[in-house]
C-alpha cells in the first residue's frame, strides 16, 4: 500500500494555510468486501502537522474519516520557504511522513 502525502502550503496576510491529501484506505471495519467478509478496520489514528518543527495541529481520527483524507487548516505566522511537516500513525502501527515548503 502506497502511503503518499501531498501537501500545499501558502502564506498570505501573516497566516499560513496548509492543505494535505493523505493516501490511506481508512477502512472503517463496517464495510464488506466482494466475498461478503468484513474488511477489518484500518485507519489513521493520529496525524500531526509541524511548522519548522513546532506542532501546529494534532488530529485524532476515527474510522469515520473519509478514505484518502483531505484536511485544510491555517495558523498564524510562517514565511515562504519554511518547512511544513506532516506525519501519521495508524491503528496497525504503520507510519508515513512528508515535508513541503511554504510557497
Amino acid at each position: 500500500m502506497a502511503h503518499q502525502i501531498l501537501i500545499r502550503a501558502k502564506v498570505a496576510a501573516g497566516s499560513t494555510t496548509v492543505e494535505a491529501l493523505v493516501q490511506h484506505p481508512m477502512d472503517s471495519g463496517f464495510i464488506k468486501d466482494k466475498s461478503g467478509k468484513l474488511i477489518p478496520p484500518h485507519y489513521i489514528e493520529v496525524i500531526e502537522f509541524t511548522h519548522n518543527g513546532r506542532i501546529v495541529l494534532t488530529g485524532f481520527w476515527g474510522p469515520a474519516v473519509s478514505k484518502n483524507p483531505f484536511i485544510k487548516f491555517s495558523f498564524k505566522g510562517g514565511k515562504s520557504g519554511d518547512a511544513i511537516g506532516v506525519s501519521w500513525v495508524d491503528n496497525h502501527g504503520e507510519t508515513a511522513s512528508a515535508t513541503a515548503r511554504i510557497a
Binding site: 497566516s15 495541529l57 469515520a64 474519516v65 483524507p69 484536511i71
Partner: peptide, 24 residues
C-alpha cells in the same frame, strides 16, 4: 454513526479553529 466521534483536533496557540475535512 456506529461510533459518534468522527475526529478531533488539538490546536496550539496561533492555529485557527477553521478546519476543513471529510467524514463518512
Amino acid at each position: 454513526n456506529p461510533f459518534a466521534m468522527a475526529c478531533a483536533y488539538r490546536l496550539p496557540p496561533g492555529t485557527s479553529p477553521a478546519i476543513s475535512s471529510q467524514v463518512k
